[in-house]
Structures are given as C-alpha cells and as structure tokens.
Design a protein around this nucleic acid. Sequence first.
DNA 1: TAATTTATTGCAAAAATTTGCAATAAGGAA
DNA 2: TTCCTTATTGCAAATTTTTGCAATAAATTA
Lengths: 143, 143
Amino acid sequence: MSCASLYAPELRARGFRMTSQRKAILHVLHHSGDHLSPAEIFERARREAPGLTYPTVYRTLEFLAKNGLAMPAHIVGKKQLAYQIVGESHHHLICRSCGSSLEVGLDALEPAIRQLEASSGYRFINSHVTLLGLCPKCQKEAG
Amino acid sequence: MSCASLYAPELRARGFRMTSQRKAILHVLHHSGDHLSPAEIFERARREAPGLTYPTVYRTLEFLAKNGLAMPAHIVGKKQLAYQIVGESHHHLICRSCGSSLEVGLDALEPAIRQLEASSGYRFINSHVTLLGLCPKCQKEAG
DNA sequence: TAATTTATTGCAAAAATTTGCAATAAGGAA
DNA sequence: TTCCTTATTGCAAATTTTTGCAATAAATTA
C-alpha cells in the first residue's frame, strides 16, 4: 500500500480522483520531504508513472497546493519554483547574496496563527515563511 | 528628483549602476507598493523607459530581490511570480480554494526575527509570510 | 571634458510553464 | 461486473521566462 493512499480519502471526499500520476507525485514529495523543482519531480515520478508528462506535473503541483497538500516556495537564487509536501511548517532563512540557507524554527508564529484563525474566520492555516538576510560570510565580503 | 535616487547610493556603494531601466522599475514598484507581475511592471515601466525589454525586467527584478530592495512572492492561484518593493513587511493570508486574500499584520514575528538575527549571525532580515487557509465562504461550500 | 573600464542592456534563440481540446480512465450506479 | 459520468491526462501549440553574447552606457580617472 502506497503512502499516497494516505491522501486518497481526503481527495475523494472532495470529489477529486486519485490517479496513478498523482500517486507518483505525492509519493515523491512525501518521501523527499524537501523542496523539489518541477523538473526533479518529473524525473523521479516518471519512474513510477512512465507516461507522465510535464503539463500533468505542473497541473498536479498547482492542484496539490490549492488543496493544501503541498506548498510552493520561490527560493531566491534558484530559477524554478519549488514544491514541498505539507507536513510540519518549514521556514527558511536565505542569504540574498550567496543563496546559502538555513532551516529555522519559528514557534513564535504558532500562537499568532491560532489567534488569526479565530479573528479571521479562516481555517486550516499553513504557514510558509521566507526570511531574507545577509549571512555572516557575505557581511564581511560586503565590508 | 526621482524616487529612484533614494536607492542609487546604496547600489553605487556596492559597485552597481543606476540605469534608466532600473529607475523606471523602482519607480513603478515604489509608487504601487503592491505586488505586481512582471507583465504589469513591464507595461508601466515602459512609459518611462521606452526601450525597455522583458529580459531586462526579469533580470532587474531578480537583481532587486538579491539586493534586498524587492521581494518576490508566489501568489497561489496566480500564474506569475509577483514582486513588491521592500518596505514594511507585508504578510498575506490567502484562501487556497477561491484565492481571495487578506493582508494581515504579524507583529508577533518581529521579536522572533530580532532574536534570530542574534543567534544566526544573519543581518538585515526581511520577512515574507504566506499563510494558506480556507476562507469562511469556502468552508461552507466545502461542507 | 574626453577616455577608459566594465556593469548592464537588447536581441535572438532556448528553455520552462501554461492552455485548449479531444481522448482516457477513476469512481459511483446499475 | 459492466456502464456511465466527468475529472484528469496527453498532445500540440501558445505564452512566459531564461540565457549567450555583442553593443551600449554609467561611473571613475585623467
């Protein structure tokens, strides 16, 4: 039984279908856990779903994002938009000069989000935070 | 004197040049204050810099992002990456079903960022937060 | 001001992403 | 299981974004 079956009931309940292409893409995202570009996702998912095409990859990623199963992130310095499975919130601190990045915890955000759910009426809020700064090394080089 | 001259010294100090194209694009971003797509930026900036081309728009936006003058944001539901001048941090709460969005304050984040500057050694940290949820209307429709 | 250096631009072509539409296949009903 | 409905896919073409390179022009020096 594939890990994708974890997601199937949620999709079906909303009237969507679990296809071999979606299974393959979810499988790749789920097991990587990291940010992956559409090209990386295409290459890996194609092993399980041979006929897979690029339009399907792009459409599936947008679909997963709309349904809260994946999160898109524009990583400064990389050209392509990258996607990541939604699990725990991952927050990134990125150097805008050299592009090096650091995974950071922002537990401070959690209470604020709960409060926001209460005040805004929105629910199931996922957060994606990108922090841009200058890393110590690049501060020195910049003088 | 154009608003772009506000940014010129900072660029020159780092060995970059203030060109008519950059002036035009900064002017557009500065006065809009909002997220704009490359196409919108191209159209508006072209009025002031007639020879402006698309490659220049894309390169300039990436350049501004790398240098902390603009922030890119992938707005779910929109196809294109959008850019916004860096001023106060703007944070967005977006409905992943209908795409409607809300500007939210996250002052709660500020202390955490200051603390992060201290612990990580990174400096000049700008934040960009995207929160995805379901708006009240779409919660009803989803049952 | 004129000359020099090189960051930046425009052009043309390449690559990535999106779209329309007919064909396919998932999931429910018979 | 077989049939039916329609969400989803693949294909081909359109559009958007990126890249290489020669030409241009910003800023510094003489």
